[in-house]
Design a protein around this nucleic acid. Structure first.
Length: 156
DNA sequence: GGCACACACGAAC
DNA sequence: GTTCGTGTGTGCC
């Protein structure tokens, strides 16, 4: 049985660095992106999530314990994202270190992060070049800088 | 299925 | 600063 009984809920809202959109199916987070959609379909779950993100962006330390929908990802991607979730608030890790944990190459690790469906929740902004440079970010480097600053990471 | 190519890197020159 | 090795995903064929 694979009925379409689940509805996709989504909401966009403006924050400091720009718009952010969250999408969820029932009580599972399916995607976060940095765009603005006109369509707004809220439910309790997504309202709470929005509130949490707004708190986080105000500098509050929020632990996002939301269930994530990994169903469209490869086992390896899931592995990397789970490892990344272990990186604590206001700490950073290099692509190299992350790659080591995941037993892969730094290049490959970056490749995975570029496809992160849950930026912010999965803290890909905490991954930077071992040279100290920022690396990249799907929503643009302004976002990355902003997030690091919020978390009071040294040097930002 | 296989293969070529693109990459949010890093290390060596 | 440039070049080369590198692992994974994606999209061709």
């Amino acid at each position: 049985m694979q009925s379409e009984s689940t509805t996709t809920y989504m909401v966009s809202f403006k924050t400091g660095p720009g718009f952010i959109t969250v999408e969820a199916k029932d009580n599972k987070l399916t995607r976060i992106s940095f765009k603005n959609t006109k369509e707004q379909r809220e439910n309790e779950f997504i309202r709470k999530l929005k509130k949490d993100i707004q708190s986080y962006l105000r500098g509050e330390k929020v632990s996002f314990g939301y269930p994530l929908d990994f169903s469209s990802l490869t086992p390896f991607q899931i592995k990397v994202f789970k490892l990344l979730q272990e990186v604590p608030y206001s700490k950073t890790i290099s692509y190299k270190e992350l790659a080591k944990k995941a037993k892969t190459s730094p290049r490959a690790a970056g490749r995975i992060l570029a496809s992160n469906p849950f930026p912010v929740i999965i803290p890909c902004h905490r991954v930077i070049n071992s040279s100290g440079a920022l690396g990249g970010f799907s929503g643009g480097l302004d976002w990355k800088k902003y997030l690091l600053k919020i978390e009071r990471v040294e040097g930002f």
